[in-house]
Amino acid sequence: GSLMYASIFGNVSAIIQRLYSGTARYHTQMLRVREFIRFHQIPNPLRQRLEEYFQHAWSYTNGIDMNAVLKGFPECLQADICLHLNRSLLQHCKPFRGATKGCLRALAMKFKTTHAPPGDTLVHAGDLLTALYFISRGSIEILRGDVVVAILGKNDIFGEPLNLYARPGKSNGDVRALTYCDLHKIHRDDLLEVLDMYPEFSDHFWSSLEITFNLRDTNMIPGSPGSTELEGGFSRQRKRKLSFRRRTDKDTEQPGEVSALGPGRAGAGPSSRGRPGGPWGESPSSGPSSPESSEDEGPGRSSSPLRLVPFSSPRPPGEPPGGEPLMEDCEKSSDTCNPLSGAFSGVSNIFSFWGDSRGRQYQELPRCPAPTPSLLNIPLSSPGRRPRGDVESRLDALQRQLNRLETRLSADMATVLQLLQRQMTLVPPAYSAVTTPGPGPTSTSPLLPVSPLPTLTLDSLSQVSQFMACEELPPGAPELPQEGPTRRLSLPGQLGALTSQPLHRHGSDPGS
C-alpha cells in the first residue's frame, strides 16, 4: 500500500510541476520586462504597450523563439521550412505564380514574418522605404497627419515599386495596425538579389506586381527641396563636378596662354591676372594647382613670374625650331616645348642647366612650328573623362623618358669634360720664339709635331656638333674642335714665318 501511495504521489506532483513550468517561465520573463521598464524609466503609455505586446506574443508563440529554433537546422532544411511557412503567400499572390521551385525557395529564405499588435506603428512618415510588405492577416491604416487616407487588409501590398527607383524613397505617411496583424516583408536588397539570379522571372514579377498603396513621397523628385535634403551631399558634389568641367572646357578654348597655377587659371584673360583667384576666387580649394602655386600668395601677385606667355621676339635665322618633346602628345598638341628640351639645344645650356634650372624654367623657349593648343594648358582630366590607368601609364612613360634624357646628358657632359682635359694635357705650358741651342744640326726643328685630335665617332658628340652648327654659343662658352686643319689655341699665330727665318745662335768662333 505504501508503494502504491508513493507512486501516485510522485506522478501527481510531476504533472503539477509540468503544468506550472510554463507559468514560471512566463513570470520570469515578465519580471525581466518590468525590470527593464523600471531601469530605463519608460513612461506609462509606452510601458503599457510593452506589457501588452509581451503578453500577446507569449500567448501567440508560447514563449518560443522561432528564429532561434529555425537557425538550429541546416540551410537546406531551413529553405523547406521557410517554404512551408510562406506557402499561403507564395501560392495566392499573383506576382509569385509561375516561378520555379528554386526561385520560390530563394524568396522564402528572404521573407521575414512580423507580428504587430493593435496601435503599433510599422512605418513612420519620413522613414526610408527599405522593404516591401505583404499583409497575411489583420488590417492596417495609413495616416497623413491625423487623416486616415487608406485601410488595407489581407493580401494587400504596400511599399514602393523598387524597379522604378535606384534609391529608396521616404514614406509619405504613417502605417498603423488596427488589429493583430501578420506581415511578410522582404528587404529591398534581398528581393533585387533574387531577381538578379532569376532574370526570366524578374520581368514577370515586375509586370504582375500591383502595389495597393504606394508609400513613396511624390514630392521626392529631382530638383525638389525634399530631394535635395535626401541627396544633399551627392547633389552638391555633382554640381561641383559639372562646374569644374564647364570651366576646364572654357580653358581649352584659349591656347595662347600657358599658366603654371593649374587648370583653373589657364583660361583667365590678361585683365584677371591681378585678381586673387581668377574664376576660382569664390572657392580657392575647388581646383588643383601645381607646386608653384604656393608662391602666388606673396605680395606682387600681378607681377609674379609664374604666369607664362609666349615671347614675341624673333628667332635667329640659324636657330632650330626646338628640341624633341618629352611626351608623344607634344608633337601634336603643344605650341611651347618643355623646359628640359631647351637644355639640349647647345653645349652652353648643358654647362648651365643644373646651376640655374629654376631660373631657366621661365626663360624664352623655342617654339614648335605648329600653332596647336598648349601642352601645359590642357586641363586636368576628371576620373569620369580619362581612366586612372591611362594617366598612370603616361606618367610612367614620361618618367622613363626623363631617365633616358638624364643618362644621355650625363654621358655627353662626361665626354666633353674628358676631351677638354685631354686638350689641356697635350698642350705645353708655354712657348717662346727663341729656342735653346741643340747639340747638333738636327735641332733646327722649332717644335715637335703635334698629332691632331682623333675624329669623334660617338653619337652623342655628333649631336653636340649638330647643335653647335645651329645654335649661337654665348661669349663665355668653350669652343669644341671642328672639322678641318686643327691648330692649338695656345700656339702663336705666325708659326709659318718662324720656319722661314734663320735661327740666331749665340757662340764663340775658336779662330777669332
Results as ranks from 00 to 15, higher is better:
L128H: 12
A131H: 13
A131C: 14
I135N: 01
S136I: 05
G138Y: 03
S139M: 11
I140E: 01
G145Q: 06
V149M: 11
A150Q: 03
L152P: 01
G153I: 05
L162M: 10
N163F: 08
L164G: 12
L164C: 13
G173P: 02
D182L: 11
H184Y: 04
D189Q: 07
D190P: 01
L191M: 08
D196T: 13
D196R: 10
Y198M: 03
Y198C: 01
Y198K: 02
D203C: 10
F205V: 03
S207M: 15
S208N: 15
E210C: 10
T212W: 01
T218K: 09
N219H: 08
I221C: 10
P225Q: 14
G232N: 07
G232R: 09
F234K: 10
Q237C: 12
Q237R: 11
K239I: 09
R240I: 09
K241A: 12
K241S: 13
S243H: 11
R247S: 09
R247C: 12
S259A: 10
A260C: 13
G264M: 12
A268N: 12
A268R: 09
P270C: 09
S271L: 12
S272V: 11
R273N: 14
R273W: 04
S283A: 09
S286D: 15
G287L: 09
P288C: 13
P291C: 08
D296H: 13
D296E: 09
S302R: 10
L308W: 13
R315D: 12
P316M: 07
P316A: 07
P317M: 06
P325L: 12
L326Y: 05
D329S: 07
D335R: 08
P339Q: 11
F344K: 10
S345W: 08
V347T: 13
D356P: 12
G359Q: 07
R360V: 09
R360D: 07
Q363N: 15
Q363D: 04
E364V: 07
L365P: 08
R367T: 09
R367W: 07
C368F: 06
P371Q: 13
P371T: 09
T372H: 14
P373C: 12
P373Y: 09
L375H: 07
P379T: 04
P379A: 10
S381F: 09
R385L: 14
R386N: 12
S393K: 01
A397L: 08
A397P: 06
R400Y: 12
L402H: 04
R404Y: 01
L405G: 02
L405Q: 04
T407G: 07
D412G: 03
M413C: 04
T415W: 05
L419M: 06
L419A: 10
L420M: 04
Q421Y: 09
Q421F: 04
Q423A: 05
L426A: 11
L426R: 10
V427R: 07
P428T: 08
T435K: 13
T435E: 10
P437Q: 08
S451E: 14
T455F: 08
Q463V: 06
V464G: 10
V464M: 15
F467Q: 14
F467N: 11
M468P: 14
C470Q: 08
G476M: 15
L480P: 09
P481M: 12
G493M: 05
G493C: 09
G496S: 12
S500C: 11
L503K: 05
